[in-house]
Amino acid sequence: MRLPRARPLPGEPPSAPARLAGIEMHATTRADFIMRGVLAAGAAYGLGAVSPFVSRALAQGTQYAPPEQAGKSDVEILNFALTLEYLEAEYYKRALSAVSMRGEVRELVKEIYDNEAAHIDFLTGAIKTFGGKPGRVPTVTFPFGSESAFLELAQTFEDTGTMAYNAAGPLLESKAVLNNAGQIAQVEGRHAGAIRWLRGHNVTDGALEGVLSFQEVVERVDPFIVDSPRSFQEAKPESGL
């Protein structure tokens, strides 16, 4: 099955004006002298003077905090992640009985399911620690068919999870939470890499992980959630936020 593709996959740099506009926006909120220094070299000598690698890094650096997600509290971010983890865990749990899989795929799916279930427990505990209320378990629906279709959607979920955690990283206030979010992000990235390898797909789409805004994450996974939690509804484009 195919998901609607919201926009070009990460890795494609935005146009130079968009990039500069992003930096402008940033300069008002954060002092990031090192990256700004690289950018200044580009501004002075033209973006072509900056190595293509660095301009790609810059393009991504400017993307990580779209306006609608700045200002979210750590608890809100963790709750958003919790919904994703619920979705993933349930996907693998059902797939283990609904999909006929090769041995090595089944082994991986069991491993991934255990990890996602542990992430749910972790996030639930962390949200409570910060005085928040963990979001409810969403009702989900998946189209199950062949192993190959299952792996394709699994890749979408894992890629989405990896990019969502990466986007959230710099927004987190607590360094302890950042540390833990990084631990989870790495495990999501490992799932994505393993699934892609077993599918015979590229393990990476370029040398830098992309990031997804909350809205982009919701667009990718909302078709599988019957009753979206409030954090997801708020991130939908039609909500006007």
Partner: peptide
């Protein structure tokens, strides 16, 4: 990651971090 002060450097480090993770997992497979 938790030692990094600049949000941009952090975003860059995280972007490399999960690429390394993907590669490691494929090799593990």
């Amino acid at each position: 990651a938790p030692r990094i002060q600049s949000a941009d450097v952090l975003a860059g480090a995280l972007a490399i971090h999960t690429i390394e993770a993907r590669q490691a997992a494929a090799l593990n497979m």
